[in-house]
Write a protein that binds this DNA or RNA. Structure first.
Length: 899
RNA sequence: AGGCACGUAGCUCAGGGGGAGAGCGCUACCCUGACACGGUAGAAGUCGCGGGUUCAAAUCCCGCCGUGCCUACCA
C-alpha cells in the first residue's frame, strides 16, 4: 500500500473488521503439517457451545493470541488449535429449558429426537462464541476447528474407553456417588461445590431393644434415618463398652438394628454414636462394607422419598426431614436440637443440593494414571507456571479418588458397552457387536449412560490432532508447547489431560502450563450475573476497540494476581492506542516519498538522538522478548508503553522535529540553524526503522491498529503478521549515547523545572547558562545545545566553566552542572529563595541517611567494597550539590537584601 | 480444620537485601503545526503490625492481624 496519511482519529470498528477478514482470506492463521520451521502449538481450552464470551475467555484467549502471533513472527510454524466443548449437562439444561417453554420435555420427545434437537441447537447457536473470539482477534487455525462430539473425537473417546476398560482402569460398580436430583444424574466430586450452610444438629434417641434405656445419635439429616441399618460407636469409647452385641429399635420404622464398633467414629463429636445409612452417606457406605450391613435407599432419583420410606413416601427429602423430626418429637425421641453450621454440596450446574447416593456407575481407577502424572511434573517434563500451583497440583493428585465418569443424561458420548439380555454378559467395544461372545445371543442392550464431558476434554490435545489415527499433525505438534488456562480447571481438565496424554501418547500433552489469574470487577469481586457486576467483553470492544482491551488485559496480567478490571482502566489504554496512532500519523507525514533502500547503504551519520533511540529500542526489544518468553505479559506491555510514549514520543519525536520541519521549509519557532547535509534523510531512515520495529513489537498485543499503520508505512509488503519480530542487535547498544542523552535530558528537564517553579510564561523564550566543571560535559552540551534550546524553549544557551554568576536568574543543580535561567524583569527573589531552600532540604535529608551509613564502622568493614564506594561517591555528589545550592541561595539572598 | 496467595502513593498495581517506582487520579500552567484521548512541571508513601537474621530489611525468617481463594469423610 502507499504511504497514505492516516485519518485524524483511529476508528477501531471498521479497521478491525477489515483486517480480520483479510487475515482469514490470506490464510495467515494456518499451520503447516509439513514445514522446515520449528513447531509451536497451543490447543485452545474449548469453550462450551452454550457459552457467550466473558472476561475469562477474553483474557485467556488474548494471552494465547499474544503467544501465537509472537512465535509466528519469530518464524515458528504455529498451530493454535481451536474448537468447542459439547458441555453435556449445561447444554442439555439449555435445550430442556427451551422445550419446557413449548410445554414439552425430553421424555415426551424420546432420546433420539432429543439428541437431534440438541444438534440443531448446536448448529444454530453453538458457533456464537467462535464468532466472538474472532472479534477478539484470535488467530486460531479455524480450518482445523474441532468439536468434542464430532466423529473423530468420538472415535478417540471410544478407543480410550475400551482400552482403559481392557486394562482394568475402567470398571463398573455400586458406590456412593454425588447425585443431582434435579439434573437426575451422577456427578464427579469436582462437579460438586461446597458451601457453608446454617443447619441443625439433631440428637435422636434410639431405644434399646431390651427396653433398658437408649443410645443417642447426632445427625444433620434426620430423614436418612429411615434407611439406617446400624449405630456405630468407637471401640475405645468407655461409655459404650457395655453395649456390645446389643440391638436398638430404629424409631418410626421399628426395625431392629445392631450397635457396631468402628474406629472411624469420633468419640468427641456429638454423642460419640453415629447412625449408619450406607445408601446415603459415603462414610456410612464404607463402614457398611466393613460390617456387612444392608444398604437401604430411602430417597428416589428425583429427591423424593421412595417406597422404603414408609409413610413418608412421595415427600421431598427436605419436607420429609421436618415430618420425621415432628414424628420423633411426638414420640419424645428428640433429645435436643442445636444450631450447626456445616458445608453442603451443590450441583455446579443448577445449585441443587447434591445427594450422596448409592448407585451403579462407571469409574476410572485414577491412582495408576495419577502417579505418572505426578512424576511428569516432578521431573519437569511439564512445567507449571507460576510454580506455586505445583503444590496445589501435587496436593490434589496425591489424594485423588476414583473418577465417576457415567452421567444419566442424553447429550454426550454414549458409553460403548452392551449387556447381553440373554446371559447378562457385559460387552465393551468400540463398535456394536452382532452377537454376544459368551452365549451368541443377539439381544444386546446398549448402556444408556453417557460420559462425563471432561472425559472427552481430557483427550483434547491429541484427539483434535487426529488420534487414534497416525496423523502428520500429531507428529509435528504433539506435545504442544504450552497450555494457557485458569486455575479453576486445573483439576477438571489439566490434570486429566496429563494423565490421558501420558497413558495414550506416552508423552506429556504440553511442555508448559501457564496458569493465569481471574478477571474480577473493580472491587475485586468475582464477576457474576447475579451480582450484576459483569463487564461484557463485546461491549468493551465496541466502546474502546479490541486493541485497547487486549493491551489492558496484558498490562494487568501479573503472575499470581487477579485482574481488577474497570472501564476506566481500559479507557486509559485506549489513550495509548491513540498515542501510537498519532505518533504514526506524524511520522508518516514526514516519511512521504521515503525510499529506505537508498539510505540503508548510507545511514551513517547518526545523530545523538538517533543513536539513543536505537539503543533504547534494542533494550526494549530484549525486555519484551524475554518477558513474553517467561509469560510475563505485564512486563512486556509496560516496557512497550514506556518506550513508545516516554522515549519515542516525548523525546525522540520532539527532538527530530527541528530537522524534519526545516527540510520541509517550515522554520521551527522561526529559527534557522544549520545542520549537516544528509541529516534529514538519516533522520527519516531512523524514524522509519524505529516505527517499523515498534509496530512489530506491539503487533502480538494490539494486532489491528499495528496492521493498519503497517500498510501505510513505506517499504512494507503484505501483512505485519508475516514480518519478522525484531531481534536484539549488540551493535545498536550504545552506552555512550544513552549517557549523553541522559545528560541532555537532565539539563532540559532542569531548565523546564526552573521555568515551572518560577512561573516563566511558556511562550517566553528565555536565556540560559550552564556552568559545568567537566570539559567533556561542556563539549557534549555544546554539541547538542540545539536539542536543549528547542525543548526547553530557550533563546540562547551558553555553556561554560564555572565562573561568575549571571545576573537576575534562578538556579538549579543537575549532576555537576549548575543551570541558570535568566529572568530579568520577572525575577522574583522570594520565589527563588523558596525554590532553592526546598531543593536544599531535599538533599539534606538524603545526605543525612548517607552520613549515618558511613559513620557505621560495621558497614565500612563488612559491606562489599563497591557498595561502600558507591555510598561515598553519593555523599560526595550530594555535598557538592548542596554546596552549590547554598551558594546560590546566599547570593540570591544577598541580591534580595540589596534590592 | 488444613493449605495457598495477597496487604507498597487517594485508586490499581510493578519491584523483591544496599538510591521507594509506574499507570490512573490530584494541583498549577499551556489549544506550540501528530495527539487536550495532548504537553510541561509539581504534591503525595514509618512498603499491614510485632519480633528475629544481617554491617544493611519494603525485600529473607517467625508470629499476629486483615483480605481473597482452594482443598476436607467429624456425622
Amino acid at each position: 500500500m502507499s504511504s497514505d496519511i492516516l485519518a485524524k482519529g483511529y476508528e477501531p470498528q471498521e479497521v478491525e473488521r477489515r483486517w480480520y477478514a483479510y487475515w482469514e482470506k490470506e490464510g495467515l492463521f494456518a499451520a503447516e503439517d509439513v514445514s522446515d520451521k520449528k513447531p509451536y502449538s497451543i490447543v485452545i481450552p474449548p469453550p462450551n457451545i452454550t457459552g457467550v464470551l466473558h472476561m475469562g475467555h477474553a483474557h485467556n484467549n488474548t494471552l494465547q493470541d499474544i503467544l501465537c502471533r509472537f512465535r509466528r513472527m519469530q518464524g515458528y510454524n504455529v498451530l493454535w488449535m481451536p474448537g468447542t466443548d459439547h458441555a453435556g449437562i449445561a447444554t442439555q439444561n439449555v435445550v430442556e429449558a427451551e422445550l419446557a417453554k413449548e410445554g414439552k420435555n425430553r421424555h415426551s420427545l424420546g432420546r433420539e429426537e432429543f439428541v437431534k434437537r440438541v444438534w440443531h441447537w448446536r448448529e444454530e447457536y453453538g458457533g456464537l462464541i467462535i464468532k466472538q473470539l474472532k472479534r477478539l482477534g484470535a488467530s486460531c487455525d479455524w480450518e482445523r476447528e474441532r468439536f468434542t462430539m464430532d466423529d473423530g473425537l468420538s472415535a478417540a473417546v471410544k478407543t480410550v474407553f475400551v482400552k482403559l476398560y481392557e486394562e482394568g482402569l475402567i470398571y463398573r460398580g455400586d458406590y456412593i456417588i454425588n447425585w443431582c436430583p434435579r439434573c437426575q444424574t451422577a456427578l464427579s466430586d469436582l462437579e460438586v461445590e461446597h458451601e457453608e450452610h446454617n443447619g441443625h444438629l439433631y440428637y435422636i434417641r434410639y431405644p434399646l431393644e431390651n427396653g433398658k434405656g437408649a443410645i443417642v445419635v447426632a445427625t444433620t439429616r434426620p430423614e436418612t434415618m429411615l434407611g439406617d441399618t446400624a449405630v456405630a460407636v468407637n471401640p475405645n469409647d468407655e461409655r459404650y463398652r457395655k453395649l456390645e452385641g446389643k440391638i436398638v429399635i430404629l424409631p418410626i420404622m421399628n426395625r431392629p438394628i445392631p450397635i457396631i464398633y468402628d474406629e472411624y467414629v469420633e468419640t468427641a463429636f456429638g454423642t460419640g454414636a453415629l447412625k449408619i445409612t450406607p445408601a446415603h452417606d459415603r462414610n456410612d457406605f464404607e463402614i457398611g462394607l466393613r460390617h456387612n450391613l444392608e444398604a437401604i435407599k430411602v430417597i428416589a432419583e428425583d429427591g423424593r422419598m421412595n417406597d422404603r420410606a414408609g409413610r413418608f413416601q412421595g415427600e421431598d427429602r427436605f419436607e420429609c426431614r421436618e415430618h420425621v423430626v415432628k414424628a420423633l418429637k411426638k414420640e419424645g425421641l428428640i433429645e435436643k436440637i442445636e444450631r450447626y453450621q456445616h458445608s453442603m454440596g451443590h450441583c455446579q450446574r443448577c445449585r441443587t443440593t447434591v445427594e450422596p447416593y448409592l448407585s451403579k456407575q462407571w469409574f476410572v481407577k485414577v491412582k495408576p494414571l495419577a502417579e505418572k502424572a505426578i512424576a511428569a511434573v516432578q521431573t519437569g517434563s511439564t512445567r507449571i507456571i507460576p510454580e506455586t500451583w505445583t503444590n496445589t497440583y501435587f496436593e490434589w493428585m496425591n489424594n485423588i479418588r476414583d473418577w465417576c465418569i457415567s452421567r444419566q443424561i442424553w447429550w454426550g458420548h454414549r458409553i460403548p458397552a452392551w449387556t447381553c439380555e440373554t446371559c447378562g454378559e457385559l460387552i465393551v467395544a468400540t463398535e456394536p457387536l452382532q452377537a454376544c461372545p459368551a452365549c451368541k445371543g443377539t439381544s444386546l442392550a446398549q448402556e444408556t449412560d453417557v460420559l462425563d464431558t471432561w472425559f472427552s476434554s481430557a483427550l483434547w490435545p491429541f484427539s483434535t490432532m487426529g488420534w487414534p489415527d497416525e496423523i502428520q499433525a500429531l507428529k509435528v505438534f504433539y506435545p504442544t508447547s504450552v497450555l494457557v488456562t485458569g486455575f479453576d480447571i486445573l483439576f477438571f481438565w489439566v490434570a486429566r489431560m496429563i494423565m490421558m496424554g501420558l497413558h495414550f501418547m506416552k508423552e506429556v500433552p504440553f511442555r508448559d502450563v501457564y496458569i493465569h489469574a481471574l478477571v474480577r470487577d473493580a472491587e475485586g469481586k468475582k464477576m457474576s450475573k447475579s451480582r450484576g457486576n459483569v463487564i461484557d467483553p463485546l461491549y468493551v470492544i465496541d466502546e474502546f476497540g479490541t486493541d485497547a482491551f487486549r493491551f489492558t488485559l496484558a498490562a494487568f496480567a501479573a503472575q499470581g494476581r487477579d485482574i481488577k478490571l474497570s472501564e476506566e482502566r481500559i479507557e486509559g489504554y485506549r489513550h495509548f492506542i491513540n498515542k501510537l496512532w498519532n505518533a504514526s500519523r506524524f511520522s508518516l507525514v514526514h516519511l512521504k516519498d521515503f525510499q529506505p533502500d537508498y539510505f540503508r547503504k548510507d545511514a551513517k551519520h547518526l545523530s545523538l538522538a538517533d543513536r539513543w533511540i536505537l539503543s533504547r529500542l534494542n533494550g526494549t526489544t530484549e525486555t519484551v522478548t524475554r518477558a513474553i518468553g517467561e509469560y510475563k505479559f505485564n512486563e512486556a506491555a509496560s516496557a512497550l508503553y514506556q518506550f513508545v510514549w516516554h522515549e519515542f514520543c516525548d523525546w525522540y519525536l520532539e527532538i527530530i522535529k527541528s530537522v524534519l520541519y526545516r527540510k520541509n521549509k517550515v522554520e521551527a519557532h522561526g529559527r534557522t540553524k544549520t545542520t549537516k547535509p544528509g541529516d534529514y534523510e538519516t533522520t527519516r531512515f531512523v524514524l522509519w526503522s524505529v516505527l517499523s520495529e515498534i509496530l512489530r513489537l506491539l503487533h502480538p498485543f494490539i494486532p489491528f491498529v499495528t496492521e493498519e499503520i503497517w500498510h501505510k508505512l513505506p517499504d512494507t509488503e503484505g501483512s505485519i503478521m508475516k514480518a519478522e519480530f525484531p531481534t536484539t542487535n549488540p551493535e545498536r547498544h550504545d552506552a555512550e549515547a544513552e549517557a549523553s542523552m541522559e545528560l541532555v535530558m537532565g539539563i532540559t528537564s532542569g531548565i523546564r523545572n526552573i521555568r515551572g517553579e518560577m512561573n516563566v510564561a511558556p511562550s517566553l523564550r528565555a536565556d540560559a547558562v550552564v556552568h559545568s566543571p567537566d570539559k567533556g560535559v561542556r563539549g557534549a552540551l555544546n554539541e547538542h545545545q540545539d536539542i536543549i534550546v528547542n525543548l526547553a524553549n530557550l533563546k540562547t544557551l551558553e555553556v561554560m566553566a564555572p565562573g561568575e554568576r549571571p545576573a537576575s536568574c534562578a538556579a538549579s543543580v543537575v549532576g555537576e552542572s549548575t543551570i541558570f535561567v535568566s529572568l530579568k524583569d520577572i525575577m522574583d527573589f522570594g520565589a527563588e529563595q523558596a525554590h532553592l531552600a526546598k531543593e536544599i532540604a531535599k538533599i539534606g535529608k538524603e545526605l543525612e541517611m548517607v552520613e549515618k551509613k558511613l559513620s557505621n564502622e560495621d558497614f565500612l568493614q563488612k559491606a562489599p567494597q563497591e557498595v561502600v564506594e558507591g555510598v561515598r561517591d553519593k555523599r560526595q555528589r550530594l555535598v557538592e550539590k548542596k554546596n552549590k545550592l547554598e551558594d546560590q541561595l546566599s547570593t540570591v539572598s544577598q541580591i534580595a537584601a540589596d534590592v
